[in-house]
Nucleic acid binder design. Structure first.
Lengths: 212, 212, 212, 212
DNA sequence: TCATAAGCGAGACGGTACGTCTCGTCTTGGG
DNA sequence: CCCAAGACGAGACGTACCGTCTCGCTTATGA
């Protein structure tokens, strides 16, 4: 617990210890069971020191969660941007279907409850994730594969949004089928495409294209 | 405080008084400032009685919020379903852009934190709202105006999802332009419509399945 | 729980049921665990009815305890009054050394806390007990075996007092030896008998100064 | 409420503040009216801190009462031990005849109800009091003025016992005459002194039988 | 080199909300 | 008219956690 040699450069040590302890606690007992005192006890960092590094509990959690999450879902690169996007989106949502999703939901809840944590969530979770996919969406946009006006920010929010909503409220299924449906809806829209030629059939061929 | 005549049919009286007090408190000071004790003081209902009616604070809030929200946004009916949907979706998201959205976000946070509240959120907020728009989506589906597989549940989640995400995490703008963009993306999809030639990849199915 | 037959002559039935239930509860879980609600549930008598019969919980307990205690310790009658007194006193204190003593202590505590119970304690416990031993002390007094001024009331209080004190505060041993010591001290006094010759101390016969 | 300079040495400050507040409350409204919350409000010490210092309410009261009682009744020292004992005993019982006695009774009741308080009662009230009189009884014993086997503990219990009993149950008079009677009985015994000639009764000298 | 200032662990503290408990009153509805 | 059933207001209870603070020690830097 008390290393001897390099004593003063503690700031970084304490910082790391807190994040590590927080990660451990949140996997073990869930975010709701996390308390500053438990983090302090687990990390060996005193509560006072913790409060010198972060403004509130949710900020710690946001940073810890963001650090852990560094690319849990790989970005494929097959050269077929649309396929890659579909794969990535499906993988991403599927990943948050697991217990990781519950953590994510509780992290978001903490952010909403403690507004001071928002910047931490932004910096340590959202931005890194978005930066990773941004070039991807950019390339897709350049290739004319995305709708006009679609950028990484909007895309992420629309893609994750429905899942977030369901995770938060606990309603709605998160079965693989549902996840695929949500991804499909987000990527291709809720409404039928405006018929290019108004003379087509009422129901149209996309039925085949979309159904699972 | 002590009404005289009809004394025993109090259950309903207490119930209403609590919901009314909760609504008032949540408009005045926000959801985070709500306390069971404050609800008790404001409503004249004792904490013990409150806990006999609801399992936790978030359940009360969910019911109160749901009761208040009964159709704050009107469903237009111009006979042009697509226009109506667009109008409704835009109005809905715009409505949650106001302070009402902050309440909504904190309600969701409370639901995620206290799982016992989820059924209340479901019953008193989500279901009534969804029931209101359901026939609308059904009619649109019958008219072939929605993509196959789109139902009221998925539609609501995808439409509201991005907004919910932004409200919860505090990131992202909620300006009218952004709202319009989110609505547009949700309704029409993130990806550009599939090109006319379907002969792209023979390897995997989702290219065909998904590409509009 | 819901007997049907004899409905009106309830008063006596309810009274008895309450006392019986209270006795049972107090043997099972101790007096501190007794609740009006538990008595009501156990006896099938409603709380409202209970409050019509007794002013407070301690009153019920006092009556129940008194009813149960009817002569648990026998009064010997060997014809040798002093021996009988010694036997009785020792038996009495020994009896209250058991778990019955703890009940007794808690009953007294309840009486001190809820003054309304005192008359019940007096009527249903103290008086019957005292009435039983009174003729005994009277006879002893007539035979000149007790000190002048000693009556049943004072005798009981002095005899039981030390035990009560120890039971209440939890201090002091209640081993057989200690009990015998307390009985001995109470019966024969703390001070050594005044020496036969009154000329011992210059300060005069305290015996006279104090006696009554 | 918020003193500035000497901040951390609060433990003692809080401790004292609680005891002082408790003393005040108990003189003003009686022990039954004491609440942890009232003590907290009066003393400026939070309930949580209070519970870190004492296990229950009765423990606080016991300590506060003991602290206040530090020798309210003086021990005379005339050189005539018997007289001193008589004076002291009478003064002591008389003192507890006042409202102080009611407090004492309720303190004992609290001790019986909350067993965790017993050690506090023992340490802060009983022991100091007993320690004060102990040398006195010892000297009397050495001088052969007390009955064999009488020590400070037994003496205190027998002397106070009857009073305690009457205080607790509310029965029996506590007039000066009665007090004197109780003191007399305790000091000199309930039974008449054994006749000088041991050959009196066939049942053998109970004096010897019982003594020790 | 040594003093100063800062960082730290430990943990007490004030504050506040929690959810439970019990009391004693009250009302309903059935007999 | 009485009663069981039990809802209710009141409010104390003991616990939990937060975020601040003080203490006393350790260590890095600047005079």
């Amino acid at each position: 617990m008390t290393l001897d040699r390099p004593r003063r450069p503690r700031s970084a040590r304490a910082h790391d210890a807190v994040l590590t302890a927080t990660s451990a606690l949140m996997r073990e007992d869930g975010i709701t069971a996390i308390t500053i005192d438990r983090i302090a006890a687990r990390s060996g960092v005193s509560t006072a020191t913790i409060y010198k590094h972060w403004p509130c509990k949710a900020a710690i959690i946001a940073e810890a969660f963001g650090r852990d999450t560094a690319e849990v879902v790989a970005l494929p690169d097959t050269g077929r941007p649309i396929d890659d996007l579909v794969t990535y989106a499906t993988d991403l949502l599927t990943h948050y279907t697991s217990s990781e999703g519950a953590l994510f939901a509780q992290l978001l809840a903490a952010c909403a409850t403690e507004p001071q944590a928002a910047p931490y969530f932004h910096e340590f979770f959202l931005m890194p994730r978005r930066a990773a996919v941004e070039p991807f969406w950019d390339r897709a946009a350049e290739a004319g594969l995305t709708r006009p006006g679609v950028d990484a920010a909007a895309a992420t929010d629309v893609l994750l949004g429905a899942l977030v909503f369901r995770l938060m409220s606990g309603h709605g299924s998160l079965s693989p089928d549902e996840v695929r449906k949500l991804v499909d809806h987000a990527l291709h829209g809720l409404l039928a495409p405006a018929p290019a030629d108004p003379a087509s059939t009422g129901t149209q061929p996309h039925g085949r294209r979309l159904r699972t």
